[in-house]
Design a protein around this nucleic acid. Structure first.
Lengths: 229, 229
DNA sequence: AACTATATAATTGGATACAGTTACACTTGC
DNA sequence: GCAAGTGTAACTGTATCCAATTATATAGTT
């Protein structure tokens, strides 16, 4: 593996897991030292992450973990609806019975992972990816995957807040049944509802947490806590 | 302007204008020399262009201009339909009369640019951007812009082939009228039709040209074209 | 003590040097 | 003439060095 890739993986994992929260400043030299590499490959990894929307170059091109406002997140969910509707619609006419068996198995796995939110999300995303793969639109799948990734840290915040949160298992069974019916229209509405529900919960939660409202101001980044003038 | 940006602009313009056709190998040293800079900023520009889909790193990570098959292009058009439908729908409820006046003016400008295909496309894209800006979904607008960009070289090939090609001016007036009616559903169907028409023409043309079928993949010498040379 | 000016450190963009790898051309033997 | 082997040139990845910019700390002034 190249140094660039190592930096990419480290940073991406840090951001997606929430270990590097939104607004965190990233120091290329520091990251490089952590991996025993120079800052050049880190710099390149940051460029890639910026393209994916996970990192933003702030004032003076200093890299920070992207901060999303509830409005941003709502927009991303709306885009997901448009994209996943299409993917679901196309997939619905291309599913085999073997696919349905795989998806059932995946739902089982999700149920069994239930207490572990991160594990559950992993399996949940894989469940959707399995469906969208059947749409045979690789760029569409990739786009969906990327948006889901961008929102993930905020979804984790939401789930972490409600430890005893009940995952919408029933919704997925419903979605699967709609797909089994073979009706593209029903598949589309099912997935639309599914995403809209998640969006509503997450955005409502974030607005009450005041996430990404004051933090959007660069001056209030948490990194500044140490030197209070 | 930074060296990285200069390289980015040069390469992007080259690709979008068709001066660097699909499959062209890009030599970072060469590009750097052309701008009086080293290959490092060029390398970084290439990373950004890869993220946008305009450049691909081929065997041994050598950068080449991305080659799209007709299938890829069809997929991109389908995604555009999903995204632009949403944008149009949202925009339709947010348009002011001043916006409509601006759009009318833009249509006039497009008509007057008529013989110059590149100029026309520029104005045409701006016309659509003006509408989508009203959707107030910046990421959506950006995504649409990016996909349109990716397809542009192929659209130009199509237009260049039919010099006397009649631009679909009437369709845009129709779209504008649908927007004026204020019905999101009608706006959605109008833009869907509009894009689908373009997609059909361009993809049909490209398939007959055998663009990106055998040349795209050195391994596969398949010919998918309907022998209509 | 607060304010300002200045020195110093940190950070970024970029060039260059160097190692490892791959492609290419040129033998050399058949 | 052609296949295989070999040496060379080109290319990529990366570290390091330098310059310019920006932030931080320090010292002096009031």
């Amino acid at each position: 593996m190249t140094a660039q890739n190592a930096a990419y993986e480290l940073l991406k994992d840090g951001i997606l897991s929430g270990r590097l929260p939104a607004g965190s400043q990233i120091n290329p030299v520091e990251v490089g030292a952590q991996l025993g590499i120079s800052r050049m490959p880190v710099r390149e990894a940051l460029l890639q992450l910026e393209a994916e929307g996970l990192v933003t170059f702030g004032l003076n091109r200093r890299p920070v973990v992207t901060t999303l406002t509830p409005k941003d997140i709502l927009e991303l969910f709306e885009i997901r609806i448009a994209l996943e509707s299409l993917a679901c619609e196309r997939a619905s006419t291309r599913m085999s019975s073997a696919d349905f068996a795989d998806l059932e198995a995946q739902l089982g796995r999700m149920d069994r992972a239930m207490p572990d939110a991160r594990k559950w999300i992993e399996l949940h995303d894989a469940f959707h990816d399995m469906i969208y793969d059947r749409a045979e639109m690789p760029r569409l799948s990739e786009g969906i995957r990327q948006i889901r990734q961008t929102v993930r840290p905020y979804l984790l915040m939401y789930i972490d807040a409600y430890k005893s949160f009940e995952m919408p298992g029933a919704e997925h069974t419903g979605l699967l049944n709609m797909l089994r019916s073979g009706s593209p229209e029903q598949a589309r509405t099912a997935v639309t509802e599914h995403i809209r529900n998640t969006a509503a919960s997450v955005v409502y939660f974030l607005m009450n947490q005041n996430v990404g409202t004051s933090a959007a101001n660069p001056n209030t980044s948490q990194q500044l806590e140490g030197h209070k003038k």
